[in-house]
Computed example of a mutant assay.
Amino acid sequence: MSAEQQAVAAVSCNGSYSFTKPNRDEIVLVAGLGVEGDVHAGVTVRHRHRVAVDPGQPNLRQVHLIHAELFDEVAGKGYEVPPGGLGENVTTSGIDLLNLPRGTILRFGAPASGAETAAGAETAAGAGTAVSGPEMAAGAAETAVSGAGTAVSGAGTAAEAVAGVLAAARAARLDEATARAAEAVAAAAERDAGVGDARPAVVVAGLRNPCQQINGFRRGLLKEVVGRDHGGTVVYKAGVMAVVLRGGSVRAGDPVSVELPPGPYGPLERV
């Protein structure tokens, strides 16, 4: 896969709660918040179920991205799903979103001449040692947010932008996966400080957790986007969730640069 093939296929947003989101000519990312005018934008969780459980949780689901290849896959099984149909904000093409490591930065648009940019990555599978295990759990939230405090003080615009989300993480009781995701967001913001690239950008925090609403949209579709592999591990295929590092407009056709974090890589988990 070449970097030229990595692109935005469609963009979508909605100011009211609905399962699907209408396509737009462009969306505007707002650093630290999400998509301008989108119902899921904010520092703390906006998804209704999450709000009902704990409204103080950090919003690591500001931007939802799905690979267009998923729609081709389910179309072969009789399910017609248009871009925005599963509620994503950005539909991508040519990027193996599900296999990206936690903390990957996606930058939208063509790089400015002479800008410092990262090389595209076609997949994270086998690219490093996954971080796992309970040793990350108890200390991860504290590490993420105490480390985030350091990042925010010295990392410039991106870290300042995500300071609110990381402050919410510091104040909340986080599960293990969310703690690791918050840590990855903090590290990405710090990394971004050394990159002279002002393009709109998000940091991939984790996987979308598909829900029964998918069957309400297309009966039987849920089983195609969540299942188990041969080893019994649950596999989530309904896209990834991200936090906005740098704001700006994103349009269909924009190229996407993929910047992997330093290894060892941590796999995406539900957030």
Rank of each mutant, 00 (worst) to 15 (best):
Val8Lys: 06
Ala9Lys: 03
Val11Phe: 01
Val11Lys: 01
Val11Asn: 13
Ser12Trp: 00
Asn14Phe: 00
Asn14Ala: 15
Ser16Val: 15
Ser16Asn: 08
Tyr17Asp: 09
Tyr17Gln: 06
Thr20Met: 14
Lys21Glu: 08
Lys21Ser: 05
Pro22Val: 10
Asn23Val: 12
Asn23Lys: 11
Asn23Leu: 14
Arg24Met: 05
Ile27His: 02
Val28Asn: 15
Leu29Glu: 00
Val30Ser: 04
Ala31Trp: 02
Gly32Thr: 07
Gly32Phe: 05
Gly32His: 04
Leu33Asp: 05
Gly34Asn: 04
Glu36Leu: 11
Val39Gln: 09
Ala41Gln: 11
Gly42Lys: 05
Gly42Asp: 08
Gly42Val: 05
Val43Ile: 15
Val43Ala: 11
Thr44Lys: 11
His47Leu: 03
His49Gln: 10
His49Ala: 08
Arg50Gly: 10
Arg50Glu: 12
Ala52Lys: 11
Ala52Asp: 12
Val53Pro: 03
Gly56Arg: 13
Gly56Cys: 15
Gly56Trp: 03
Gln57Asp: 05
Pro58Leu: 08
Asn59Val: 11
Asn59His: 05
Arg61Phe: 09
Arg61Lys: 13
Arg61Asn: 14
Gln62Lys: 04
His64Met: 08
Leu65Pro: 12
Leu65Gly: 09
Ile66Pro: 02
Ile66His: 07
Ile66Met: 14
His67Asp: 14
Leu70Lys: 00
Phe71Asp: 06
Glu73Val: 12
Val74Gln: 01
Val74Thr: 01
Ala75Val: 01
Ala75Asp: 06
Gly76Cys: 04
Gly76Met: 02
Gly76Asp: 06
Lys77Val: 03
Lys77Phe: 08
Val81Met: 08
Pro82Gln: 08
Pro82Asp: 12
Gly85Asp: 12
Leu86Trp: 12
Gly87Arg: 00
Glu88Cys: 02
Glu88Ala: 00
Val90Ser: 13
Val90Met: 07
Val90Asp: 15
Thr91Leu: 15
Thr91Met: 07
Thr92Tyr: 00
Thr92Lys: 00
Gly94Met: 09
Gly94Tyr: 10
Asp96Cys: 02
Leu97Cys: 11
Leu97Gly: 06
Leu98Ala: 05
Leu98Asn: 02
Leu98Glu: 01
Asn99Phe: 07
Asn99Gly: 13
Leu100Thr: 04
Leu100Phe: 10
Pro101Met: 03
Arg102Val: 04
Leu106Lys: 10
Leu106Ile: 04
Leu106Gly: 07
Phe108Leu: 09
Gly109Val: 09
Gly109Ser: 11
Pro111Cys: 13
Ala112Val: 13
Ala112Thr: 14
Ser113Phe: 07
Gly114Glu: 10
Ala115Ile: 01
Thr117Leu: 08
Ala119Trp: 02
Ala119Ser: 09
Ala119Gly: 13
Gly120Asp: 12
Gly120His: 06
Glu122Ser: 15
Thr123Pro: 12
Thr123Asp: 12
Ala124Gly: 15
Gly126Arg: 06
Ala127Asn: 02
Ala127His: 05
Gly128Ser: 07
Thr129Asp: 13
Ala130Gln: 13
Ser132Leu: 14
Ser132Met: 06
Gly133Val: 05
Gly133Met: 09
Ala137Met: 11
Ala138Pro: 07
Ala138Ile: 14
Gly139Ile: 04
Gly139Arg: 14
Ala140Cys: 11
Ala140Lys: 13
Ala140Ile: 03
Ala140His: 11
Thr143His: 13
Ala144Trp: 05
Ala144Thr: 01
Ser146Pro: 05
Gly147Pro: 05
Ala148Arg: 03
Ala148Tyr: 08
Thr150Trp: 10
Thr150His: 13
Ala151Gln: 12
Ala151Phe: 02
Ala151Trp: 09
